[in-house]
């Protein structure tokens, strides 16, 4: 069936199968920053914003997304660049595979939470796994980003 999505501000029409997931639809259409990690909601690397809320696109049916606004990291280039600056300073980028999803989730958190504590940050991002960094560098970077912004 045909679905209408607004991806990064652009209106798009995609022809999708009934059991197709948003991750596949997006990757097929060259939004390659959206990554496949675990395929069962456990890792967070497929995160996109759906109407502004971070969601696991690997487990969100494309049909269900019909009419919604989707943001991938390509849609927030300025914020992603800023966040990247903080990650870089802390040696937290590492393999980079999950980093677009980190940028999106951090960006959504900044909009959703006011003055989050260390625990709030950990809770908000707990589903965004990272196997490289040990999380400490990310945590320092995120705090620095929130302080400056």
């Amino acid at each position: 069936m045909k679905i209408k999505l607004k991806v990064n501000g652009e209106n798009k029409v995609f022809d999708v199968k009934a059991d197709e997931y948003l991750l596949d639809t997006l990757r097929k259409n060259n939004y390659v920053s959206v990554r496949r990690g675990c395929d069962n909601t456990s890792c967070g690397v497929c995160t996109v914003l759906i109407n502004g809320n971070p969601a696991a696109s690997c487990s969100y049916l494309s049909c269900k997304a019909d009419g919604k606004e989707i943001t991938t990291v390509e849609g927030i280039p300025e914020e992603a660049a800023k966040i990247a600056g903080f990650f870089g300073r802390e040696g937290a980028d590492q393999c980079g595979f999950c980093n677009p999803s980190m940028a999106l989730t951090v960006y959504a958190m900044k909009k959703e939470l006011v003055n989050p504590t260390d625990d709030d940050i950990r809770s908000y991002l707990v589903g965004n796994l990272c196997r490289c960094s040990g999380y400490q560098g990310q945590h320092r970077a995120i705090k620095a980003y929130l302080e400056v912004e």
Partner: peptide
Amino acid sequence: ERPSIDGKGLMMGKPGYTD
């Protein structure tokens, strides 16, 4: 102290991985 040379591009979603 220097940020990794690929970190920013990868965070911004530039294609770079095998797939």
